[in-house]
Amino acid sequence: MAAGGDHGSPDSYRSPLASRYASPEMCFVFSDRYKFRTWRQLWLWLAEAEQTLGLPITDEQIQEMKSNLENIDFKMAAEEEKRLRHDVMAHVHTFGHCCPKAAGIIHLGATSCYVGDNTDLIILRNALDLLLPKLARVISRLADFAKERASLPTLGFTHFQPAQLTTVGKRCCLWIQDLCMDLQNLKRVRDDLRFRGVKGTTGTQASFLQLFEGDDHKVEQLDKMVTEKAGFKRAFIITGQTYTRKVDIEVLSVLASLGASVHKICTDIRLLANLKEMEEPFEKQQIGSSAMPYKRNPMRSERCCSLARHLMTLVMDPLQTASVQWFERTLDDSANRRICLAEAFLTADTILNTLQNISEGLVVYPKVIERRIRQELPFMATENIIMAMVKAGGSRQDCHEKIRVLSQQAASVVKQEGGDNDLIERIQVDAYFSPIHSQLDHLLDPSSFTGRASQQVQRFLEEEVYPLLKPYESVMKVKAELCL
């Protein structure tokens, strides 16, 4: 049975990233139509530049190519590739079939990587351009969430054990800070992308030097003109047959890092959902379990974690691919890159769409948070109580021993009897502590235990987050809708 299948058929496997999760716009960027249309555009740009620099290419040939950029006979191309065992030459023939007058000058002087690699770089750039505003929107939604809850005390956790208090907004800023680093890295790697350009079979530009009869300047002009037509500021000066596969490492490393950030955020949300302090959106008709109707599973956060793990592992592909590119190139890269580049971007696209949807509907339960604080705060307040007693004339050592005994009794009630923490009640009825009984409410005010959390939130948002989001103001209103 021949390899390949009808990918629109229910009898043929289709990647869930495309069929179930990723956005239509990201799927289109990695589609065959987008790819092969870009090949034709690159052939047109090459012909236009070659004509401008004096090669015998007519206006009629150029116009014929322009008129057929979208006229792609995919069936013919597939048949040609089956016959020739070469995808680029299959599309040269297919393009030439609908451009008979231009057929002889299509791909003039070029090698397969002229269309293959340059198209990949265009796709990487455009895919990054799709991700950047999506990530900015996630940051914006979380920034709104953090600002609104900047002063809401909550129990902090280290080692997932109760620690000092923080605020809900401050905790959210930990998430935002990681995503801001990801946004900066995505922008950097996007701006650092260079075009492969017009380089020939081993990167020496020998074929173009021959076409222009040894004119170095025209060869350099050709490279520059096509690079500018493709919208790049610069091209690699040095290439082998391909652009260095280190570029793929750079791009997928940034995406993998984004995956790590999203995994951490969504894990926190899942843990908070278990504590009943916070939940992701839950639709009115949504079913959490087929057997347990009360369940409210954090399905979206779980999906993000599941896909983020996949995204983090994909960076190993370009690392290994770059390491086995012998001399000017081997074909070890080809099949692998067809999979890992598309999957990385479709996965990143999915987790950003999902995280935006989550961040637009996060639900906080202040009463649950308050109750958990009441359970733990008495123990945390013991040092403040000791200091207040010393100020009232008591002995630190005597007070410490009193607190120690009462704390152990209260802990026994919590752990052995399943009761509430009654340390404060014990202190309130103990005559030894009568000098500070009137101060206990103040000493137990949760806001006095959150330090500068709310001020940190305000400063972080104003100095770091809002300036970073400013270039994306025009796209901030787009909502994230999930079908599944």
Rank of each mutant, 00 (worst) to 15 (best):
N71T: 05
S15T: 15
Q458N: 12
F449Q: 04
T111L: 00
P162V: 11
T347E: 09
G197E: 02
L469G: 04
A78I: 14
A22C: 10
E81K: 01
L193D: 04
R374N: 01
D332R: 01
S12F: 12
L186N: 11
F236C: 13
E148Q: 12
E79W: 10
I373T: 08
E302D: 02
R141D: 06
R137D: 13
L124Y: 05
H7E: 06
L130D: 14
F208L: 12
K224S: 11
L362H: 07
Q439S: 04
D6F: 04
R33C: 12
S253W: 10
C99V: 14
F74E: 10
N274S: 12
V29G: 08
Q456Y: 07
E463N: 15
P293D: 00
N357C: 05
V189Y: 14
T154F: 01
T58N: 05
Q221V: 05
K218F: 09
L468Y: 11
G231I: 03
Q325L: 10
A291S: 06
C266A: 07
T111Q: 03
A388R: 02
F379W: 09
D32G: 11
M278Q: 05
L55G: 01
F282H: 14
Y34N: 02
M26K: 00
D349A: 12
H93I: 02
H86F: 02
E481Q: 04
L53R: 00
E81A: 00
T52Y: 12
D87C: 06
N68V: 10
A411G: 12
D117C: 12
E463M: 13
E425Y: 13
N353A: 11
A110Q: 01
D32A: 11
D178W: 13
L484T: 15
K101G: 09
L252R: 03
H97I: 09
S23A: 13
F157K: 09
Y114H: 02
R188V: 08
I369W: 03
R452N: 08
V115E: 08
K415Y: 05
R459N: 14
G169M: 01
N336I: 12
P153N: 04
L179A: 15
V363A: 05
E79M: 10
K246Q: 04
T204N: 11
E481W: 12
A411I: 05
S31A: 12
L362F: 05
V226M: 15
C304A: 12
K276E: 05
V168Y: 09
V429N: 13
L222N: 02
G8V: 13
W45A: 10
R338Y: 02
P378I: 10
R372W: 03
V478E: 15
S151K: 15
C27R: 14
A453D: 05
K477H: 15
L443W: 03
F74R: 10
V457E: 01
E277S: 04
E50T: 12
A381P: 00
V475Y: 15
V429D: 07
P446G: 05
G8R: 12
M476F: 15
I105E: 12
I287V: 06
L468S: 13
P366M: 05
E277F: 06
F195L: 12
I386E: 07
D445K: 06
H93C: 14
L186D: 06
F236T: 04
T321M: 13
L331G: 04
L271W: 02
V226W: 00
T239F: 01
K134S: 06
I369K: 01
Q210L: 11
T111R: 04
P318C: 13
S438W: 15
Q397K: 10
F74V: 13
G203P: 00
